[in-house]
């Protein structure tokens, strides 16, 4: 027995040392990346600007591109709260001097905007370049990213209206970021040695077992008016076992659950085709809410065919100047099913 475990130990050690010099061990697996491949994917930009592409863009250019590619979701001035929290707002000239955004302390801003929080300008360049516009990520040229960033910083009065942001002056502008001094790594929640206090927790409970306090201070409970906000809890709990869900909210919703079928399928289709990125069931996103579409076309005999064609072909002008992109990959049957579903109130089940 002891011999057996010894040999196991030897094996384990052998495994360790093998992997320590594993270069070239896994023969035939993986291959060197080409320079073009590295260039295509290695687009990250670090706080020290490693990875920053050459280029420049003016506030004017940024304003144009932003209006065309970003404003539909973020508002013309990055102020919109419709699709995401505002990009701009809540910072002052005083913050630009101190590098600490005061409204984070006094709560004077209704929302924590992006510029209130971000300390590093590289973060914004990197993110806009990799992920925006949301529905067409990685479609911006570096000069456009510089321009957009200049425009956003101009809205926050960090740079003047005639400013041109470039790879050459990013480091200078970094020194003006309103919340540049707002980050700390003095905590115990970084699982490595490079930052923080080495893992020391800031808060500690006490494992008291008996008579731990004299009274129970109940400081918060779910307000009555919120009891129904999450629908019928009876339909969110198992119908067998030690408890049942409380009957709340919309009591009708569950009744139709048996007939999931078609509506659920089409809803899933709307999700997977990306329709839901631009249309809410009850809210405008980039395009009209389905409720608005229903209200406009209710009872019109030809609406189904007309709208199915429009979904496939795309187009603008009915709801505003923002166009809906075409959906050529959608079959006629699916386009019709989607429109039918929208015109029946876009039910979930």
């Amino acid at each position: 027995m002891s011999r057996f475990s010894e040999s196991l130990l030897v094996l384990a050690l052998a495994g360790l040392s093998l992997s320590a010099q594993a270069f070239d061990t896994y023969k035939g697996l993986g291959r060197p990346a080409t320079a073009a491949e590295l260039k295509a994917w290695d687009i990250d930009v670090r706080p020290d600007f490693k990875g920053l592409p050459k280029g420049s863009g003016s506030v004017d250019l940024g304003s144009e591109v932003f209006e065309a590619r970003c404003a539909s979701c973020h508002g013309s001035f990055g102020e919109s709260n419709e699709v995401f929290t505002p990009l701009v707002g809540g910072t002052t000239r005083e913050d630009i001097k101190t590098g600490h955004v005061k409204s984070l302390v006094d709560g004077s801003a209704p929302q924590r905007s992006t510029l209130m929080k971000v300390a590093t300008i590289s973060t914004l360049f990197d993110y806009i370049q990799r992920a925006m516009p949301w529905t067409e990520p990685k479609s911006l040229k570096p000069d456009e990213v510089y321009g957009i960033l200049a425009y956003l910083l101009n809205l926050a009065e960090v740079v003047p209206a005639d400013f041109v942001l470039s790879d050459q002056n990013m480091a200078e502008v970094q020194k003006l970021m309103p919340n540049r001094n707002g980050m700390t790594t003095e905590h115990g929640m970084w699982p490595g040695k490079g930052m923080g206090n080495g893992g020391k927790p800031d808060v500690k409970g006490v494992a008291c077992m008996r008579n731990c306090k004299t009274q129970v201070q109940l400081v918060s409970s779910l307000p009555d008016y919120a009891a129904d906000a999450h629908g019928n809890l009876a339909e969110q709990n198992r119908e067998v076992g030690p408890a049942r869900g409380k009957v709340t909210g919309n009591r009708e919703a569950g009744k139709a659950a048996e007939s999931i079928s078609e509506n659920a399928r089409v809803q899933q289709l709307a999700q997977s085709t990306g329709c839901m990125a631009c249309h809410g069931v009850n809210a405008r996103i980039v395009g009209p809410g389905y409720n608005e579409v229903l209200a406009r076309y209710k009872g019109q005999a030809d609406a189904e065919t007309k709208l199915a064609q429009k979904v496939k072909a795309g187009g603008a002008g009915v709801w505003g100047s923002v166009p809906m992109p075409p959906h050529p990959q959608l079959s006629d049957a699916d386009a019709t099913a989607l429109v039918k579903w929208i015109l029946s109130g876009a039910p979930a089940k």
């Binding site: 600490h100 300390a119 990197d126 980050m183 970084w190």
Partner: peptide, 26 residues
């Protein structure tokens, strides 16, 4: 470290003094 969007704008923990704890991972 890279200070990516989801470690420099989100997933940062606001403290009462207005500072954000960054790189809180555990």
């Amino acid at each position: 470290p890279w200070a990516t969007k989801d470690e420099a704008v989100h997933y940062i923990d606001l403290l009462p003094d207005g500072q954000h704890r960054q790189y809180t991972s555990v």
